[in-house]
């Protein structure tokens, strides 16, 4: 299929920092409404891939399209238009310290011209969707627990009803129960909005719960991709080693570096 047939398409993407090659012919296609999880070890290029999609990093080669539109080398105005379609949950939530919970959630709405009172109402509704009541809306991020920050981050990511949502390690730093709650919230919220999602994680429980499709990144490229239910029978040694958390296997060389 052509890259224009997909909501998000990355073809032959190359990115390196000095001599270190991070993405080396990376390919990934995501259909509209699909939930794709990219798994991989630490430092294999998952975050770099996401930053290339967000326009924070520019790849040296390859094409990245969103809704068929090339997003590499576009103007700030064009980038803003693309970003209007995107919501993002950061690994550590990345809430603005100087703003209250509701202001954090409403930030993207007000940036797009929504009035303060309407933005506050929407923020309260989105916070309710992630299980946070009115008692937290005027708190500041430094008084929230890790799980609550993730919830606020999730509310901020879905506040503008984006067509695309990126999740960067959504369960990292949380206990297993809170991690599972966040997974459920992601599934629930994405179901509500019908958004296309891309999640990067190394938490297999999270991946199995969130994903329609899982892709494994290794050595700067996708080494296996397929439906979630087929990952156990991937037939790929790297995938098998990773999902079972075994020390021995082809992944070992990278781990020892």
């Amino acid at each position: 299929m052509a890259e224009t047939d997909f909501k998000i398409s990355m073809r032959d993407v190359h990115k390196q920092f000095g001599p270190k090659v991070v993405l080396d012919g990376f390919n990934l296609d995501i259909a509209t409404g699909e939930s794709v999880v990219v798994i991989g070890g630490s430092g294999v290029g998952k975050s770099v891939m996401l930053k290339c999609l967000l326009g924070i990093l520019t790849p040296e080669n390859g094409t990245i399209t969103i809704d068929g539109e090339n997003i590499i080398g576009i103007s700030t105005g064009q980038r803003d238009r693309i970003n209007d379609k995107i919501g993002m949950l950061f690994q550590m939530a990345a809430l603005f310290d100087s703003q209250s919970v509701w202001e954090n959630v409403a930030f993207g709405l007000m940036a797009r011209g929504t009035s303060k009172s309407d933005a506050r109402d929407i923020a309260v509704a989105k916070l309710a969707l992630v299980g946070l009541g009115s008692e937290v809306i005027d708190l500041y991020p430094d008084s929230l627990s890790g799980g609550m920050k993730k919830r606020v981050g999730l509310a901020r990511a879905i506040a503008t009803d984006p067509e695309i949502i990126f999740f960067d390690e959504p369960t990292t730093g949380l206990d297993p129960i809170m991690g599972d709650i966040i997974n459920d919230l992601i599934v629930h919220c994405v179901g509500e909005t019908g958004a296309t999602t891309l999640t990067i994680t190394h938490d297999m429980q999270s991946a199995r719960k969130i994903a329609d499709k899982i892709a494994m990144i290794y050595d700067g490229r996708i080494v296996w991709a397929g439906p979630t239910e087929e990952i156990e029978q991937s037939g790929n040694d790297i995938v098998t080693q990773f999902i079972h958390g075994r020390i021995e296997g082809p992944f070992q060389a990278t781990a020892q570096l």
């Binding site: 550590m92 990345a94 310290d97 993207g108």
Partner: peptide, 16 residues
Amino acid sequence: MRVTEQVDALTTLSTN
């Protein structure tokens, strides 16, 4: 803000 990704968050929220 940079090391806690708040600057990146601004970009994703359509704010330069």
